[in-house]
Simulated assay, not measured.
Amino acid sequence: MNILVVCAVTEAHKAQIRAAAGDNTVVFTAGDLSGTAVPVDVEKLAAAHVIIGNVAPPLLKHAKNLKWLQLNSAGAGSYVAPGVLRPGVFLTNATGAYGVAVAEHLLSQLLMMMKRLPAYCDNQKAEVWRDEGPVEGVYGSTAIIVGFGDIGARFGKALKAMGAHVIGIRRRSTYLVPEASEMGTMDKLVDYAARADIIASALPDTAATRGVFNKNFFAAVKKGAYFLNAGRGTAVDQDALCDAVENGRLAGAALDVTTPEPLPAGHRLWQTPGVYITPHIAGGLHLLHTQNEIVNIGVRNLRAFLAGEPLINEVDFTTGYKK
């Protein structure tokens, strides 16, 4: 069996994968640390029975022998579209690998806004010693985290430890987990918005999540709230977001994701004071912990696949979510 590894890995990771592969052939390519889909030689794709990592979806038509694709991303939306994978091909994702990295990024963005750090950075560049006035804090705040999976729960745990009342929002389940103070569902999202000092999204890109943060949502938000998005840019009406920041409904917004990506020059988001943008780098493979977890998931599944055992993180093709 031919195993093609297309995500960025260290020499130690290669040793792990080779050990799990046994006598099977393993081919490594130069993966990108961004974790995004990469172009791969057509001949290598045609020979592969197993792929570990994200291949640009249009190229998968060449993977005629593919039996299983292990993504290095948690998002699987572009891989469940009709015609991308042949019927019968297993698809698994890397849910569980990104929680630490993205939650830390969200926390840094939130504190950056609350403590007015951009103003102090500007002052330093101008050599100005000036007190920028009152700041906000996490302690005693109410936070709603929309998409309370691995990433959302990690961020919720951090905020709860800092003294926030954390409301986790899921599609359906209201089962209370330790990382939250309260649980809610997506159908009540606008109602929860009125209570929130902090709103964070970790939503994937699905038909049900597109545009949920729209004009009506921002109109219902508690004045002075902070908005963060590390899920997918498609969840946000970006003009409505800019309006909400400009009119003071939001105290600030920090976005690691936009639509489109890359965000083109001249886009309104770039020029809206109070909006802070990072280029989809909260996750990726920038943190070694994340790389380790992705490889651990892949190795565990590789052993299971070769033994004919069930895989973890199998994706449901009808929802795009992990089953």
Results as ranks from 00 to 15, higher is better:
D122E: 13
K125H: 10
V102T: 07
P118Q: 03
P118T: 04
T142L: 08
R116V: 08
M114K: 11
L106S: 13
A103E: 01
E104P: 03
P134M: 06
T142R: 07
D131C: 11
K125C: 02
S141V: 03
R116I: 04
Y98N: 06
A143S: 07
C121T: 12
Q109F: 12
S108N: 05
L111I: 14
A119R: 14
H105A: 05
G140C: 09
V135K: 11
Y98G: 00
V102H: 05
L106V: 13
Q124N: 10
V138A: 05
Q124D: 06
T142A: 04
E104D: 06
V135F: 08
M114N: 05
S141Q: 06
G133N: 01
Y139Q: 14
G99V: 07
R130A: 12
Y120H: 12
P134Y: 03
L111A: 05
A119E: 13
N123R: 06
P118F: 02
V100S: 09
G137D: 09
A119F: 11
R130G: 00
P118H: 01
V135I: 14
T142S: 10
A126W: 05
S108T: 13
W129Q: 03
N123W: 01
E127F: 12
P118L: 03
M113P: 00
P118S: 03
L110D: 03
L110S: 00
E104A: 02
D122Y: 11
K125E: 12
Y120N: 09
D131H: 10
V135A: 10
A143R: 02
L107W: 04
M113F: 04
Y98H: 13
Q124G: 03
E132C: 07
E132M: 08
M112A: 01
Y120W: 11
C121N: 11
M113V: 11
G133P: 01
A101K: 12
W129Y: 11
Y120P: 02
V135E: 07
D122N: 10
K125N: 10
Q109A: 14
V138W: 08
L106P: 00
C121I: 15
R130V: 09
G137K: 06
L117Y: 12
E136H: 11
Q124K: 15
N123A: 12
L107D: 00
C121Q: 14
P118G: 02
E104V: 02
P134G: 11
Y139P: 00
A103K: 02
G99H: 10
M114V: 03
V100C: 07
G137S: 08
